[in-house]
Nucleic acid binder design. Structure first.
Lengths: 333, 333
DNA sequence: TTCCAATGTGTAACCGGTTACACATGGTGG
DNA sequence: CCACCATGTGTAACCGGTTACACATTGGAA
């Protein structure tokens, strides 16, 4: 592989000149420029990113830290991140944290050691101290999902509370008279916000009691288990708002096994808008998050921060929308 | 951030000694070792991966190049790769190629520029010349899926032909008398092998004609379109072997729309074993590939090659297995 | 005419590691 | 007693870039 010194020698200039041309920094005479470009072409020269990183502290690398890429919510997000990163000349490191603090810390270390330029974080585990350790290292971070409690970095997220209310309103519209909720782990802000949205929407109804809520794990099995408990406690529930699509799919499956007909006996609305939701029978009604857009926006913001084009810590909240499908086509509404 | 020179100074030794200790290369006196370790702890020293990469040409980075992480087949693979990589101290770069040669070439360039230690490739686009350009740069590659036509690097894959035959045999067992096939793009080796397996299994039957095969795009829509064409050409088909699960899901959906009952009128068997296949109603019978294991094995081999522990170019072919589910529960068999 | 800013280029230090090589010491076999 | 090897450590070059700084040259304003 040719180095910058080879290019300089062939073009009869100094390496500083070549570097200036490459980085469009400082002055370079038009003629010189042509000579150097010719040399670059002849030698098939490609600047070495590692050397650049060492000298300039910029490696053109973003890290994407998420709980688990095999959770169907994340691939589309990852895709968006990678697409945007690539168009700006960045490369993406993939990190699965499983929401385990020690894994996350491990990655943080790796990132400092690698001069990662910026980090996209999907996590509810990360605490403020960890974030600070990153800002000491001057590595910009953008959080997805996280609460805006203490804003110390930009946040990109969906309007979870509004989405939950949208879901409940829809269930009411299609004729539900008693609507339960299956919620995810309350350490996760998104889960909590959806619970709050649900309560907000139902608390004025006489039928509502807190026992109409049931916790689950944000997985297919979690949804299946929770729906069974909830339905045995409140057999007369005729509508379910479920905290994410994965749980909703599990619940749908379980209800079928239990001989409960969906949507005739119980209508279901999920949350997220993952692909799989459109494939079941009946198709799952859900609150759709613009996953790709969220990933795009987060990455753009991160790159802006990296390149020093943004000082503030904006918070972007994306609107969600209802995809009304088979699991709420009751014929009662 | 502390550097190796800070550590050396504090410990009262030379940087070479620190480096030797860090890399467990050469001799280090037990007492010296303790002093240096104390200094490392006190300074909170972490060796800089970038500098290491520049000096030693090893960056601890793997690249995973696949068509599209948002295709449900790949997240589990990616997860396996990242898991194994992490346990060996490697980091994974995620690259979506969309099977576009120019994107792939772009990534190749990035990888050379970054001293990526090794590459995992899922591609049917990559040609021999590209591969050679990588081996010139001495970057080990492991291919997933690719044909073993010209073995110039290790290959890890599934027994597609056997899987196809398994599928057809199963369809026959459950009573199908006329089995069609929807296949994926023939540039893709896996698609071709499945076609060949199908033909092998059906060609001795009197009902078989090549018109019982229909091409599709390995997507949900591709499967939906293909099944419609195929069924209008051969309305008496009572079993379908479909080249991948995504297409099978599309076909299932379309048949329902067309009023064809599955599995009563037409039984369906897919290929891959993606999560979603177990969620439909009826659940999709499919040929399951051990996706996670494939990813694990490929990554292990790659790391072995990187670390010089393997010279050969082995070919691993994983067994596939039948997951008999609702779409083939005909009651005819 | 003088001075200064804009333009253009080269030198050399630096980023933070790895490693070849030289050198010292002490024990062992012949 | 000497040669030689295993052990232990330091010096300095090198990896391939970036960039501060010094040093021309040129042209226009004062």
């Amino acid at each position: 592989m040719a180095t910058i010194r080879d290019v300089a020698k062939l073009a009869g200039v100094s390496i500083a000149t070549v570097s200036r041309l490459l980085n469009k920094s400082g002055y370079v005479n038009e003629e010189t420029k042509l000579k150097v470009e010719a040399a670059i072409r002849k030698l098939n020269y490609e600047p070495n990113t590692i050397a650049r990183g060492l000298a300039g502290k910029k490696t053109g690398t973003l890290a994407l830290v998420l709980p688990d890429i095999s959770n169907p919510f994340f691939p589309e997000l990852a895709r968006a991140v990678e697409d945007v990163a690539r168009t700006y000349g960045y490369t993406v490191l993939l990190c699965n944290s499983d929401n385990q603090p020690d894994k996350e810390r491990g990655y943080m270390q790796v990132m400092r050691q690698r001069y990662v330029d910026g980090i996209l974080f999907v996590s509810h585990t990360l605490n403020a101290r960890d974030l600070e350790s990153m800002s000491e290292a001057k590595i910009p971070i953008v959080m997805l999902d996280r609460s805006p409690a203490k804003v110390i970095c930009p946040v990109v997220r969906s309007k979870n509370g509004e989405g939950a209310q949208l879901a409940v309103r829809h269930l009411l519209e299609v004729g539900c008279r008693k609507i339960g909720h299956i919620y995810g782990p309350q350490e996760m802000i998104v889960a909590k916000e959806r619970v709050m949205g649900y309560e907000e929407a139902v608390r004025s109804f006489p039928w509502y009691t807190p026992t109409m809520m049931e916790p689950g794990y944000f997985t297919i099995e979690g949804g299946a288990d929770a729906v069974e408990k909830l339905m045995s406690r409140h057999p007369d529930i005729d509508g379910l708002f479920i905290g994410n699509d994965l749980m909703a799919l599990g619940a749908l499956k379980k209800l079928k096994m239990l001989g409960v007909s969906v949507p005739d006996q119980v209508a279901i609305c999920g949350f997220d808008g993952i692909q799989m939701a459109a494939l079941t029978e009946p198709e799952l009604t859900t609150i759709v998050q613009p996953i790709y857009d969220i990933g795009m926006m987060a990455t753009r913001i991160l790159i802006k921060k990296i390149e020093g084009l943004m000082e503030e810590h904006p918070i972007f909240e994306f609107d969600v929308s209802l995809a009304a499908r088979g699991t709420t086509r009751t014929g009662r509404g």
